[in-house]
């Protein structure tokens, strides 16, 4: 670990010394993904879709534009698609070839999403993977796995739990987890 740390610091100093990168830009990139861009953005989108049927329709038709309405977009999410879970169909997102993920709405992917175990198994045995997350679906629920092989990035809109009809959007957003927007978990109250 220490050896890698030294190697990274050395690379930084080489690139800065040669005038290839500005340290202030490095700080800006880190700050953006450490603190500004994360799954609360996606939860905001989901809560809006749950409470505004017209917005949900726009999200289904053109997710890139609908997400931009709420101020989100950019790198790693230039092209977005939203897929909606229902009582009959459950969506799960993976990138078997690398780690493609909808950055503007979910931030950087968690370690498990990038792991060889998830990337290999999500397409082969999605129900077994879901069970590891405690998600057990009825046999008659179809499972649809989206392998993110292009620059089109997928956001799962989970099902809204029963008993939340009178909840305001910000309270709904608070119960929408990162994993539910990848599809490995459901939203419950």
């Amino acid at each position: 670990m220490r050896a890698v740390d030294a190697r990274v610091r050395a690379l930084e100093s080489i690139l800065v010394e040669k005038g290839y990168v500005d340290p202030a830009a490095l700080d800006e990139i880190i700050e953006t993904y450490q603190h500004r861009v994360g799954p609360r953005n996606g939860a905001h989108v989901v809560a809006r879709a749950w409470t505004d049927p017209a917005y949900a329709e726009r999200l289904a038709a053109d997710a890139t534009a609908a997400v931009a309405e709420l101020g989100y977009g950019g790198r790693g999410g230039e092209h977005l698609a939203a897929v909606f879970n229902s009582a009959r169909e459950h969506h799960l997102v993976v990138c078997t070839l690398c780690s493609c993920y909808p950055w503007p709405v979910l931030g950087l992917p968690p370690v498990w999403y990038k792991s060889p175990a998830y990337r290999s198994r999500a397409v082969l045995e999605p129900r077994a993977v879901l069970a590891e997350f405690g998600t057990v679906l009825d046999d008659d629920v179809a499972v649809r796995v989206h392998d993110s092989t292009s620059e089109l990035r997928y956001l799962v809109v989970p099902q809204r739990p029963a008993g939340t009809d009178d909840w305001p959007a910000d309270a709904l957003a608070a119960i929408v987890s990162r994993d539910s927007m990848i599809g490995t978990r459901l939203v419950s109250v």
């Binding site: 690139l15 990168v21 490095l26 950087l108």
Partner: peptide
């Protein structure tokens, strides 16, 4: 799974992300 607010798992990881994007 790791908590949502854990974005990196070693002090050097954010710098690798930034250097890769900037390079």
């Amino acid at each position: 799974p790791e908590p949502e607010d854990v974005r990196f798992h070693a002090g050097w990881e954010p710098l690798v992300l930034a250097l890769t994007l900037a390079a």
